[in-house]
């Protein structure tokens, strides 16, 4: 195996506002980079093939499934995960609304939904129910039937206005 050894790549990136230098195997996903290299596990793996949205992160203003992005691709980019949503002053209005509206049961999909929904509200402060359902179509939840998630996003949008 030694002769096949692939060299790690130095990557400079910003995760939740913190600039950092990391060493990443070139074949490793951003999801694995966050969880195993940087050590933040709020971003979850549900399928590892871009179909569940549990690993959604915000990459330079766009939401992506971090399992479909390589760790080396975030060189020079800004990555925002669920860990970056709350501030020392408190929860993001979406996080608060998810709690108040009981928009989570098991909670494994919640980080992905929060990151997705934040990207929506960052650009569209008052989305309709239809728009919310369209926007969240890439995030699977098996517990709630989405009802309370849609209501929580709607509530947070009204709050942040």
């Amino acid at each position: 195996m030694a002769e096949n050894k692939v060299k790690k790549v130095a990557v400079n990136t910003t995760i939740n506002g913190e600039e950092m230098d990391i060493l990443v195997d070139p074949y490793v996903s951003l999801l694995e980079t966050l969880r195993e290299v940087i050590g933040i596990t709020g971003t979850k793996e549900g399928c590892n093939d871009g179909n569940c949205g549990a690993c959604t992160v915000n990459l330079d203003g766009r939401i992506v499934d971090s399992c479909l992005v390589l760790g080396v691709e975030v060189e020079g980019k800004n990555v925002e995960t669920v860990e970056g949503m709350a501030t020392p002053d408190g929860l993001h209005p979406l996080q608060q609304a998810f709690l108040e509206e009981a928009a989570l049961q098991c909670g494994i999909c919640t980080p992905g939904f929060l990151v997705s929904a934040k990207a929506l509200l960052d650009n569209e402060p008052d989305p309709s129910e239809e728009r919310i359902r369209h926007w969240l179509a890439g995030n699977l939840c098996r517990c709630t039937g989405y009802d309370k998630i849609v209501k929580a996003v709607s509530k947070a949008s009204k709050k942040s206005k």
């Binding site: 969880r35 050590g39 933040i40 596990t41 709020g42 971003t43 979850k44 793996e45 995960t81 669920v82 860990e83 949503m85 709350a86 929860l91 996080q95 998810f98 709690l99 108040e100 009981a102 989570l104 909670g107 494994i108 919640t110 980080p111 929060l114």
Partner: peptide, 23 residues
């Protein structure tokens, strides 16, 4: 009544540790 669930804060902030999160 409808209080906020006790484990909710950990689950909306990514702190909650699920099966794959243990190291």
């Amino acid at each position: 009544t409808r209080p906020i669930r006790h484990d909710g804060y950990d689950k909306v902030t990514g702190r909650a540790q699920y099966g794959a999160d243990i190291k």
